[in-house]
Design a protein around this nucleic acid. Structure first.
Length: 816
RNA sequence: GCCCGGGUGGCGGAAUUGGUAGACGCAGCGGACUUAAAAUCCGCUAUCCGAAAGGGUGUGUGGGUUCAAGUCCCGCCCCGGGCACCA
């Protein structure tokens, strides 16, 4: 082996060894403790970017660490292959999405191999293949049979020029990205999955998921948004149907001064039919995209419907409005407005001159003016007739009881979570296995006719789905009556593919079932790593799908991911790396220049995994320099020859110090890897130990034996991060068997023991001195030593010592 | 607008349970080696005052709790992620 570090030779050699040895291919072994270590699979966009390299390296470090801990590790990789970019590429370049996607997968596969990840490539999944997506079609038909899917109208972004539905991303400042036309909200029929049936379970289980970050659990809790309230009905003058509203504040019921419905609400539609002004207003409100952020930040607009509802307690007439901020998708699409005690209602009332009435007063009796400022707190009821004087909680129950007795309302638990709309009006996705028959309505495709295969050789124009233009695809006999019928041309949301792929890795070749017995061995995923941007949608959908699969008898597991790590983004010049901003760094260029190990090392060293990482070319160079120094230090140590067995009975102080440092570092790095996932500090600790070895320079038998112990420990402990160089250095150190088959180093408690400890002395909390004391010295003795220090005496001066705090082994604080 | 994060030297970051702020690395400065450059090696490096010893200040910002606050509490500012059709 060469004395200078040549990463390309070292890395290709190690990779060849792993390939020839099939080192990372695993099968089910009941005698070994399994460890399933997974990263969120990539979309095959064409080129690997730094964000990919970061997440894959983090996961690879964990996988390799767990292997050294003796676990039977599965780390698979695959491709989330359906999605919009393939259609965009197809429009721009005239290549079918399938062709573009498969070419990208091939390129990126090669780039991943060059990074040396410990993947079991024999399990590689590609979600756009019928062998994969047939099973989600199958599950959909099972869900259909159980009533877990249904069709209803829902709102999409409609581009009136391109005559097509746009994704939120394709709407820029309210306009279509290609046509530049103003986008409209439009209702079309779509398929939904009843995730709300699982809302309570998805919510409650979060309390038992100790391996998930608190922030992600909080986001999911808030997203599900369970609330307890009362649903009640208001009669509407001259109408047969009453208006149903949901409120979490029935205690403010007597403060209702108006009501508002969404523009899609039946009452609004009915008014619009006879009143052109209202119709015009609704049309105007439709001139916007369908994003919640747009809805929440836009100007609050409304118009009186000229109708009124009857207050169920007072019998007063309450004016009825239509407003753009009421969402048809939450609650009943109608709200009772209490401007005195709700911020949005208050703002709207002020703008439109609607009355504001105080019905809640502060508990402490303070006077407030709700016309000047909204009062949101709970308190004591006023201006509320028989409920006056009750506190908010008591009033909640009294009013709820009243409505339940009269039958005009009832207590209700509501969720912010909505059912999952899975229809997409796009080509490049899994065909929804439904056939529409004039007589039998929507009929699921029977199991023996699955999969419904997506034709791949196709031209995409960007105006509606090309599937509609393929008669061989669209025309199909009704599976129930045999009459000529039409196939659904919408495809599934691509989140469906990513909601179960983690389970399929266990049995990627199973052609008789979605999951087989092998899945029982590997599930659940022990460690899941991916971007924080997936905190809600992907992770919630996966938790839902896992339960659907469970209830279908495919698995006993409810939670798919035991431990979750969400890694931060890769930034350059303070912004997320993106083509649009022109601040990308191509991993391939860096690997060519420095090798994969340097890139991996920098990624792990530059920032803790959960934080965003600021890219630095200089920093990469520093990592390369460290590897070069590490290489030559080990090579020159090995060149001297074999070392003798260490005799710990005759160690010098310097030898004891280095040995202590070695074993302290083992303790620290083990904790950093295993418990804290703090890879940046693990690297720093390795560097510190390495610096200590370099300063050591002791060619005695014991000296060389300790140096060997130190270098071998560093090689083993850095190997999850820089596996290639460590593979080579392990051989240089004279070992026959491969590094990946070794065990993680264990520390020697006796090496860590020390006699003296440095204690900090503060006077009034300010650092004034340091004293060195015996490790077992009593508190009184430590105090005496501290008070005897010259600088400490100077700061105490003539003052009386009022208190002394001693933190054993750490500090003394003298308060004067 | 709502939900979740983050803000520490010139830069990336460390400080794990309220107990020494700035580990480790980069950049910079000084030196060694070299015809020279690169590479490598050694030393210094928060800031202000001071010859030094030592001292003052300092973790976005304003308050508070505590013997002690980067860490806990309250308010504010700024940056990032998500908001259901980007993945």
């Amino acid at each position: 082996m060469s004395t200078s570090y040549n990463p390309e030779i070292v890395e290709l050699d190690a990779q060849k060894y792993w390939d020839d040895d099939h080192s990372f291919e695993v099968s089910e072994d009941a005698n070994k403790e399994k460890y399933y270590c997974l990263t969120m699979f990539p979309y095959p966009s064409g080129k690997l970017h730094m964000g990919h390299v970061r997440v894959f390296t983090i996961n690879d470090v964990i996988a390799r660490y767990q292997r050294l801990q003796g676990k039977h590790v599965l780390q698979p990789m695959g491709w989330d292959a359906f999605g919009m970019p393939a259609e965009n590429a197809a429009i721009q370049r005239g290549i079918p999405p399938a062709k573009w996607t498969y070419a990208n997968i091939e390129d990126m596969h090669g780039q991943l191999k060059r990074l040396g990840y410990a993947y079991d490539w024999s399990r590689e999944l590609i979600t756009c293949k019928p062998e994969y997506y047939r099973w989600e079609q199958w599950l959909f038909t099972k869900m259909f049979a159980k009533g877990l899917v249904y069709r209803k109208k829902s709102i999409v972004n409609w581009d009136p020029v391109d005559q097509t539905v746009l994704a939120n991303e394709q709407v820029i400042d309210g306009r279509g990205w290609r046509s530049n036309a103003l986008i409209e909200r439009r209702e079309i029929p779509q398929w939904f999955m009843k995730i709300t049936d699982y809302a309570d379970e998805l919510l409650n289980e979060l309390d038992h998921m100790a391996g998930w970050p608190e922030s992600v659990k909080t986001m999911q809790r808030n997203w599900i948004g369970r609330s307890e309230g009362v649903e009640l009905s208001f009669d509407v003058n001259d109408e047969n149907e009453s208006l149903i509203v949901y409120t979490t504040r029935p205690d403010t019921l007597m403060g209702v001064t108006y009501m508002a419905v969404a523009i899609e609400h039946p009452l609004a539609k009915k008014s619009a039919a006879s009143n052109p002004d209202i119709a015009a207003f609704i049309e105007q409100c439709k001139q916007t995209d369908a994003q919640e952020a747009t809805l929440e930040t836009m100007e609050k607009k409304g118009m009186s419907l000229g109708m009124s509802a009857i207050h169920p307690l007072s019998g007063e007439e309450i004016p009825l409005w239509v407003a753009n901020f009421v969402m048809m998708t939450y609650g009943t699409g109608a709200v009772m407005a209490v401007p005195g005690h709700d911020a949005r209602d208050w703002e709207f009332a002020k703008k439109h001159g609607l009355p504001i009435k105080q019905v809640i007063a502060p508990q402490d009796g303070t006077d407030i003016d709700v016309k000047a400022a909204v009062y949101l707190e709970h308190g004591v009821l006023v201006n509320s007739g028989q409920y006056n004087g009750l506190d908010s909680d008591t009033a909640f129950n009294a009013i709820a009881d009243h409505f339940e007795k009269t039958g005009l309302g009832s207590r209700k638990v509501n969720y912010r979570l909505r059912d999952w709309g899975v229809s997409r009006q796009r080509y490049w996705g899994t065909p929804i296995p439904i056939i529409y028959c004039d007589d039998c309505d929507a009929v699921p495709v029977p199991e023996d006719q699955l999969p419904v295969i997506l034709p791949e050789n196709i031209e995409v124009k960007g105006t509606g789905s090309p599937l509609k233009d393929i008669p061989e695809f669209v025309n199909a006999p009704c599976p129930r009556c045999g009459k000529a019928a039409r196939r659904e041309t919408d495809t599934f949301d691509t989140f469906i593919e990513s909601s179960w792929y983690f389970a399929r890795y266990a049995c990627p070749d199973s052609d008789s079932a979605m999951l087989d017995n092998r899945a029982k061995y590997w599930a659940p995923v022990d460690q899941y790593t991916g971007g924080i941007e997936h905190a809600i949608l992907h992770l919630l959908y996966s938790r839902f799908f896992q339960r659907v699969m469970r209830d279908e008898g495919l698995t006993d597991i409810s939670e798919p991911f035991t431990n979750l790590m969400t890694q931060g983004m890769v930034l350059k010049d303070g912004a997320k790396m993106s083509k649009a901003k022109g601040n990308t760094v191509d991993p391939a260029d860096l690997i060519k220049k420095y090798g994969a190990d340097t890139v991996r090392l920098f990624m792990m060293f530059a920032a803790p995994p959960e934080q965003s990482l600021e890219w630095s070319d200089d920093g990469v160079h520093g990592s390369f320099r460290f590897l070069k120094r590490f290489w030559s230090a080990v090579i020159s140590h090995a060149a001297v020859g074999k070392v003798n067995v260490l005799d710990i009975s005759i160690l010098t102080d310097a030898q004891k110090d280095l040995r202590r440092k070695v074993h302290q570092t083992i303790v620290k790095i083990t904790d950093d890897f295993g418990r804290r996932h703090s890879f940046n500090t693990a690297v720093a600790a390795s560097m510190e130990l390495f610096n200590a070895v370099n300063k050591f320079r002791d060619m005695s038998d014991n000296g060389r034996a300790i140096e060997r112990e130190a270098l071998e420990s560093i090689v083993l402990m850095l190997s999850p991060i820089v596996p290639h160089i460590c593979h080579a250095l392990w051989q240089e150190l004279g070992h026959e068997s491969a590094l990946i088959d070794q065990s993680w180093p264990e520390h020697d408690e006796s090496a860590i023991a020390f006699e003296l400890v440095e204690i900090v002395v503060q006077v009034n909390g300010k650092l004034r001195s340091r004293i060195s004391v015996a490790v077992d010295m009593s508190k009184d003795e430590v105090e005496k030593n501290a008070l005897a220090d010259e600088n400490v005496k100077r700061f105490i001066g003539d003052n009386n010592v009022s208190k002394i705090i001693v933190v054993p082994g750490k500090l003394v604080n003298i308060v004067v």
